[in-house]
Amino acid sequence: MPDFRSDTVTQPTPAMREAMFKAPLGDDVFADDPSVNALQDHAAELLGFEAALFAPSGTQTNLIALWGHCQRGDEAIVGQSWHTYRWEAGGMAVLGSIQPQPVETQPDGSLRVADIAAAIKPDDPHFARTRLVVLENTTGGQVLPPAYIAEVAQLARSRGLAMHLDGARMFNAATANAARHGTDVYEEARALCSHFDSASLCLSKGLGAPVGSLVLGSRDFIRQARRTRKILGGGMRQAGVLAAAGHYALQHHVRRLAEDHARLDRLAQGLADANRSHPVLQGKITVLPWQTNILFTDLHADVAPAFTAWLAQHGVRVTSSLYGGATRLRWVTHLDVSEADVTAALDCVARFERQG
C-alpha cells in the first residue's frame, strides 16, 4: 500500500532496530545515558554547534529554542504558514509567553527581507521586544537559497537579533543543495547551519528514526535547554534505545535522501504527463513546483471527489485539503516509498484515466 501521507510514517529498518536493541543505556535525566550522549555529541560536531539536546519531538525542540532566545513579552518573527506559527498549537504564546510576529510567506517559501526588516519593532515600551528571526528549511518541500539565508542573517546581526532554524527537513535542503552544487551533503548541511544560533532537526521524518528531534546551539544555550525540556515534560530516562536510532539515521540515512528526491521527481513527472495527455484529467490536475521530497497537486473541483476516492479505494494514501477552491493533495516520498510504490501510484492514476 503506497503511503505518501508524510515522511513521519517510516518504520525502523532491520539494521536500525539492531542498533536500538544493542544500545547501551543509562538515565538521560542524569545525563548519563551513553547512547543519548553519543548522539548529541555526534550531531553537534557534524553540524558545527557546540552542543545538542535530544527531545521527543520537533514541536518541543522548536519551543525549547524559542524559549531560550526570548523572555516573556519578547517577539519572534516567523512565517505566516510555517510550523512554528501555524502547526505547533500556539505553544510559543501559550507556554512561552512569546509573541509571534508572522510575515507573509512568498510562493518560493521565503520571507521578503524587506518584510522582515519592517516587522522589527523599535525599542519602545509600547511594543513587544523583537529578539529572534526564525527560518524554516525546507518549507513545504522548498529550499531556501543559501545566499538568501546569508542575507537574512546579515540583517538579523545588524539589528542585534538571534537566528533559529526550524530544520525539521534540513537534510533534504542540504541534499538538494549538494545535487545542485556537486558538493557533499554533510558539508552543505554544516554550511546551512552556520548562519544560525540554534537549530531544530527532526530524526523521525526523512531520516527514518521512529521518535525524536535535536535542538542544537552553544553550550550555555543547551544547558538552559535541558532545564526547559524538563519543564515541558521532555526529560526521558533510558532514552538511548531511541537515540541509537537517530544516531544510526545520521550515519546511514542522510545520503539516501537523494533516492527520495529522485522518486518524487518521477512521480511528479508522471502526474504532469497525466495532466497533459488524458481527456479526463487534462487541465484538471495542477502539479506545483517541487524540489525535494514533497509535492503538492491541485485538483479541479469536477474531478477531485472521484479521483481522491479512487486513490483511497486502491490503497494510495495521500493527505488532502481545500486550498483556494481546489482540492490540494500532498505527496511525500520517504524511506518506505519504493520504486514499485511510485509505479503502483502512477498505474492507479492511469487506471482512473481509463475508467473516465
Rank of each mutant, 00 (worst) to 15 (best):
A179M: 13
G167L: 02
D265E: 15
V337L: 13
F49C: 09
W290N: 15
H247Y: 12
A147T: 14
A179K: 13
A274Y: 00
Q282D: 01
D260I: 00
S35H: 06
L46A: 08
T228Q: 11
E104M: 12
T8M: 13
A65S: 15
G90M: 13
V316R: 01
R180C: 09
A312R: 11
L214K: 01
R17A: 12
K121M: 09
Q154K: 13
V332I: 14
A119N: 07
D220G: 15
D32R: 08
G48K: 01
T327C: 03
V316F: 05
L214R: 01
C193K: 03
V152D: 00
H300C: 08
T105K: 00
T175R: 14
A209T: 02
P145Q: 02
D28G: 02
D74Y: 03
A209S: 13
G141A: 06
D115I: 06
G212T: 09
A239D: 07
G217S: 09
W82D: 15
R226E: 09
D273P: 03
H278E: 01
S158D: 14
I231W: 06
V94T: 10
D260C: 06
A153H: 11
A150T: 05
L250H: 05
V337P: 14
E75H: 11
R157C: 04
A344H: 13
V152L: 00
V94S: 11
A174P: 07
A52I: 08
D27Y: 04
D123Y: 08
A168M: 00
Q282I: 00
Y186R: 15
R159G: 08
L25I: 10
H181F: 12
F221C: 01
F221N: 06
G206S: 07
I149S: 04
E18K: 15
D298W: 05
F49W: 06
R17N: 12
P34M: 03
G167S: 00
G235Y: 02
R263S: 04
L267R: 03
H300Y: 04
G79Y: 03
I98Y: 02
S57T: 11
G91T: 05
A89P: 08
A93R: 11
L203A: 05
D184A: 12
E188Y: 04
T10K: 07
R229W: 04
L63V: 04
L214I: 03
P12M: 05
R351H: 03
V332N: 08
Q40W: 09
E187V: 15
A326K: 14
S200M: 10
T59C: 09
L257G: 10
A268R: 08
H253K: 06
S194G: 13
H181W: 10
V318Y: 02
Y148K: 07
A150R: 11
S213P: 03
R330A: 15
